[in-house]
Design a protein around this nucleic acid. Sequence first.
RNA 1: UGGGGCGUGGCCAAGUGGCUAAGGCGCGGGACUUUGGAUCCCGUAUUCGGAGGUUCGAAUCCUCCCGCCCCAACCA
Length: 558
Amino acid sequence: MSDEPRETPSNFIQDIIREHNASGRFGGNVITRFPPEPNGYLHIGHAEAISIDFGMAQEFGGRCHLRFDDTNPTKESQEYVDAIIDTVRWLGYDWGPHLYYASDYFEQLYAWAVQLVKAGKAYVDDLTPEQMSEYRGTLTEPGRESPYRNRSVEENLDLLHRMRVGEFDDGTRTLRAKIDMASGNINLRDPVMYRIRKATHQRTGDAWCIYPMYDWAHGQSDSIEGVTHSICTLEYEDHRPLYDWYLDQLGVHHPQQIEFARLNVSHTVTSKRKLLELVEQELVSGWDDPRMPTLVGLRRRGYTPEAIRDFCHRVGVAKAAKVVDIAFLEHCLREDLNRRAERRMAVLRPLKLVIENYPEGQVEALEAVNNPEDPAAGTRKVPFSRVLYIDVDDFRDPAPPKYFRLSPGVEVRLRYAYIVKCTDVERDSSGQVTTVRCTYDPDSRGGDSRGRKVKGTIHWVSASHSIPAEVRLYDHLFTVPKPDDVDEWRSILNPNSLEVVRGARLEPALAGVPPGSIFQFERQGYFCVDLRESTPARLILNRTVGLRDTWAKIEGKG
RNA sequence: UGGGGCGUGGCCAAGUGGCUAAGGCGCGGGACUUUGGAUCCCGUAUUCGGAGGUUCGAAUCCUCCCGCCCCAACCA
């Protein structure tokens, strides 16, 4: 990977692995896995998990598997499998030949279930879901044992077999582990191992009508694959005793489960339910809407895999719940884009600027640097002529204090072109400025101020040479840092999270750039050609993230 | 009233009994600048949830207290 750990602090998972390596517990092997359920799109929170799973393996010379936890056919689909594979790959991770599915292990899991039944450690229960809930007890009261708990091994074996061959209806019976109905840990109150679901599975078809629960499948899948460190989020901490119990009963290879706090990013939601709600209620345009915290959304927004990986890396790994400021994500993005994005000029809201003393019909090709951070990016020619467009934001009459841009009587530099002085302004009947008139200094070609102090430099495009584009300006989806804390979270949706600017004008070098290309529009921000809707005939660009805007801060303070 | 975790500046996060409590983000100030970008400086916790205790010495050990998160799907 190109982005090696930089100012990344050590973390407790590394400590644990080092201890294992020192004691020889896993013979120095470090095998991890990223185990998504194919029932939704991956989001920024998953990116950290992926980063840790693959990162730890990489750091210790091991490997990481991609395994789908596809144990619930009623919620999963091949579409999600494909999307997840595509996204993890896009992020830059490689699992080599180690692509697995929990469903690959169904037969083995069943054999193990039979083994537990024979050992008197599992039984078929006839309780209905409602009854089972009643029998489970509460957080503070112990549960009660099911009346079916003490069936004979023979009867359990027979019933389990008949569950498998489809003799019983959905929900009528389950196979349960016989552990402890009085445990303070509810996961140990005879957890369900198999439930009946007469559903077609995307990979196993109709071969099965009983499907393993997560707990019954996960640890054993890890074990089969030889996983050494099963890294997961904190909510599974309570499940570890069960993870350990199953593996111990079976007497098979026993990985170490390690839990860390999941990553949350401010101004976003990542719960599946809320993300789905945003999509279904058309509050966003889809899972890949550039405002979504999904990885497909971030990708379409213009985020690079490098920036996301760097972010996950730098955020750190710990066990304390965290909500990282989205400003930090944006910082990592800008840092990456600053060094790789070529510069271009684009005028989002055009204001005509006429240079009175510039010869009518003359055109000059002025040289502009493509990327000041990368000399190898070279230069390009930008056409300059008598009639230009500048951004409406770059002209003010009167000029407010500390405003360095154009205003009547004031000189400003046109980036890579000439120094111009505003001599006149034309307005429409409502007083709106329609045209700014200037004179230019022919001796300042290229923007050379020749000892003079010119405070401002503004960007421009030649009116007749520029090309049109639609530019979509994105902002945070939510107006508050922690949308999850607000009950009616839709009331805190940012009404300005998307602003469509239709009449933008771009320098001609931008003609024909392919979808996905990223540029910095000088003085404004980073923009990418939309992956989904942009066409050569109708260019659409997304603002990935703005540049740091010191002027906005000054002005904001009044 | 059960079980499992977690509490270091606005947000992350090092620190694992001993120099003045790393670093990043953010924020404030300055330098530089043909992007008010980038870069570069400087500043930003007398104190580690609180109270006691152990110790020559504690964010680090002990005790009690407070706060926050997760768990009662035939979801993962």
